[in-house]
Design a protein around this nucleic acid. Sequence first.
DNA 1: CTGAAAGCGCTTACAG
DNA 2: CTGAAAGCGCTTACAG
Lengths: 350, 350
Amino acid sequence: MAKIDDVARLAGVSKGTVSNVFSQKRPTSKKVTERVLKASKELNYVPNHIARSLVTKKTMAIGLTVPHGNFFFSAFHNQFINGVVLEASLFGYRVLLDMLPVLEVRTPSLASYPIDGAIVLGPTEEDERIDLLHQNGIPFVTVGQIMNAQAKSAPTVNNDNAQIMHDICDYLIGKGHSGILFLNANERMTVSMERRAAFIEALAKHRLDVRDHLLYCKPSIQSADYLNYGYAETVRVIRESGERVTAIIADDDRTAFSVMNAIKDLGLRIPGDVSLFVICGDLSMMHQTTPPLTGMDLQPSELGAESVRLLMHKLGGNEGEYPDHIIVRSKIVEGDSCSSIHIPPPNIGK
Amino acid sequence: MAKIDDVARLAGVSKGTVSNVFSQKRPTSKKVTERVLKASKELNYVPNHIARSLVTKKTMAIGLTVPHGNFFFSAFHNQFINGVVLEASLFGYRVLLDMLPVLEVRTPSLASYPIDGAIVLGPTEEDERIDLLHQNGIPFVTVGQIMNAQAKSAPTVNNDNAQIMHDICDYLIGKGHSGILFLNANERMTVSMERRAAFIEALAKHRLDVRDHLLYCKPSIQSADYLNYGYAETVRVIRESGERVTAIIADDDRTAFSVMNAIKDLGLRIPGDVSLFVICGDLSMMHQTTPPLTGMDLQPSELGAESVRLLMHKLGGNEGEYPDHIIVRSKIVEGDSCSSIHIPPPNIGK
DNA sequence: CTGAAAGCGCTTACAG
DNA sequence: CTGAAAGCGCTTACAG
C-alpha cells in the first residue's frame, strides 16, 4: 500500500498538498492537482481511512442497533435497514450492524465505539442501549419513542402510533366491529405502550368497553410461546373464553400468518367470520395471501432514511433549523381481510 | 475522553504498561494491573479503537456485501445476516453492511476500505465486488460459487446446489411428476447456473426431456417484472402454452407466494392440481401458508456462521488445517404442497 | 496556493 | 515484568 509520503515524493509536493487534493478542504492549483492524481494512480494510492479518522475524530460510520441478541428480522426491519444504508451512503457514511447484547462494550479489552453516531431501532422502556450510548457521549436517534429517564429529550423518528390506533379502530368499528382482539408487540417496547394507550382511548371514544383479555402482548423471544404468538391467543380467546371476537389486530405479518392459521383451524373464515388487520407487515407479502391482508403502511424505509437525515444533522453541528422529532406518515392499505358486519355493536347509542 | 497518557500518569506507570493491561499481549504483574484498572475506571478510560487500528493494521470489522443497490432482503438474507453478526461477535468483530453500488470506492475522496475482510453473498458471474476486493488485497469469502477469472480459487461457503436439485427432482419425480416448471434465481447469479445445470442433469437421469420453456430465471430487480415473477410465468406456461405442468419449483418464498396466487387465479389447487416446492424460503413462514409449503432447509444462519469462521481463519494467518470450501447441509422439509400423481410419467421405462 | 512541523492516541521492538 | 522512544499515516494550524 502506497502512503501519502510516496505520492508526495513522486509528485514533487508536500504531504499536506496531497492531503488537500484528496480531502478538498483547501483549494489546490489545477497543475498540482493533476500531478498528485497522476502520481496517486501510478502508485495505486488511496488515503488510509484509519489514519484520517485518528486526526479528524470522525469514523464516517454510524451504528445501527436492532433489538437484542437473537432477534429475528422481519420484513419491516429489512426495509428499514435498506432505507438506512441507502440514505447513509448519500452522506458518505457506512453502517455498522449492532445486534448484540451490549455486554461486549463492558469488557475492558474492547476499545471505544468506532462510530460517530447511532440509530436505535425499537427502544424499550429504560433501554440499556440508550443508557450506554448516552454515557459514552455518542449522538443517537431513536426510531420509536424513548422513555429513558437519562435521555428523554433525544431526537426521535416515529410513526404517529396514537393516530394509527385511532385510524385502525375507527376503520374496524366503522365496519360494525365491537369485539376486537389486539395482539400487540412486546410490552417492553415503547411502541407497544403507545399503541396500547391509544387503543384503549379509541375504544372509549366509541363507547366500547375495554376488556383486558382482548389485549395481548407478544412474549419475548426467549419465551417458548414466541413463535406461536397469534395462533395460541386466537384459539384461546375465541374457543376457550367464548368471547365474541369479530376482528383481530395483529402487530406484524408473522403474527398475522399465525392468526390466519388459527382461524382456519377453528373452522372460521377471514373476513366472513373474523376480520384481520395487520399493523406492521410487508406489503408485497400481504398481497399474496388469501385473502390479501388489510393493514397499515408504516413506510419503514422512509423511517430509516429520516433517521439518518436527523442523525446527520446532529453530527453536523446542528446548524440550521431541524426538527428534533420527526413523524413519518402511515396509511391504511386495503386488502380483503376486513369486512363489515351488520350486527350493531351491543353498546351502541348507550 | 481520557487517553492512555492520563491513565499512565495517574497509575504511575508507562503508556506501554497501560497498553499491555488492555491488550493483554504481554503479562503484567497483578499489582500494576490493578493500579492501571483503577486509574482507568476513575478516568473512565477506554482505549481508542482508531489509534489502535492505525498501528495494528486491524480494524476488527468485516464487510458484508449483499447484492446490488436496491436489493430487497428476503427471510433467507435475514437469517444469514443473523448468523454472520452473531458469529463475528464471538471473534470480537463488528459487521459493516455494504449493499451499495461499488461506485463510492472509485471516488478519489473516499478512503480505503476500513475492513479486515469481507463476506460476499450471492456472487454473480464476473462479480465486480469480487474484482474490487481482489485488487484491494482484502481477504474475502464468498457464499456461493465464484466464477471470476481473477479469483476463482477464493474460499467459499455454499450449499451443495447440484445435490439439492437432484434431491428435489428425485423427490418430485418419485411422486410421479414429469411436467416440472423451474422458476430459478436470476441468471447472473452463480447459484442459478449451478442449479440450472443440475436440474437438466437430474431430468436426464430420469430420462425426461429437458424443455427450455420449463426453466425460467428471475428478472433483475430493475425489471418491471421483478415483483411479478412467479405469477406471470405460471399463468403463461399453464394457460397459454398449454404445457402440462404438475409441479413447480420456486427459487424463494416470495416467488412461491406469487405462484400460489397464480394457481388460485387459474382455478387450480395446490397440491391437488399442481405441486409446489420452495428452494430458499423462510421455514416458519412456509408453515403458515395454506397449504404449508414443502421446501429445502438451506440453513442460512449456518451459512453465515461458517463464512465468518472461514474468513477468520484466513485473517488469522492460515495456521492449522482448514478447508477452503465448506458445504453446508440442506434437507427437505415437508409441508403439504407436494402430492403424488398417479399418472405415470410419459417417458417412463423408455 | 503550498510547505514544514507538530500531533492524533495508540503499539511495539529494544533494552533492562 | 516494565520503560523510553520511535512510528503507524494521516490532517491541521502556522507561516509564507
